[in-house]
């Protein structure tokens, strides 16, 4: 899943280690999320959302373009 994590992190001048410290995950986890190799769990996504004070959908993009698919 595409995301803005690297941009948001850079805006705060944080390293992956800094972000990992804030989220209580390893740098590998931050790296894997940033590069789209790993999609975080809902609890971690909410934690990221709270940390950057942004809604989840502004950080993560599931690339869904349709309207009513429910």
């Amino acid at each position: 899943m595409k995301n803005q994590l690297k941009v948001l992190r850079a805006m705060r001048n944080w390293s992956q280690a800094d972000l990992g410290e804030h989220l209580d995950v390893s740098r590998q986890a931050v790296n894997a999320i940033e590069t789209g190799k790993y999609d975080p769990s809902l609890p971690l996504a909410f934690k990221i959302s709270r940390l950057f004070d942004l809604p989840i959908e502004q950080i993560f993009d599931d690339e869904f373009e349709g309207g009513n698919d429910v």
Partner: peptide, 10 residues
């Protein structure tokens, strides 16, 4: 040089 605490212990 700077790693999260959890990773350091790991």
């Amino acid at each position: 040089q700077k790693v999260p605490q959890r990773e350091k212990i790991y």
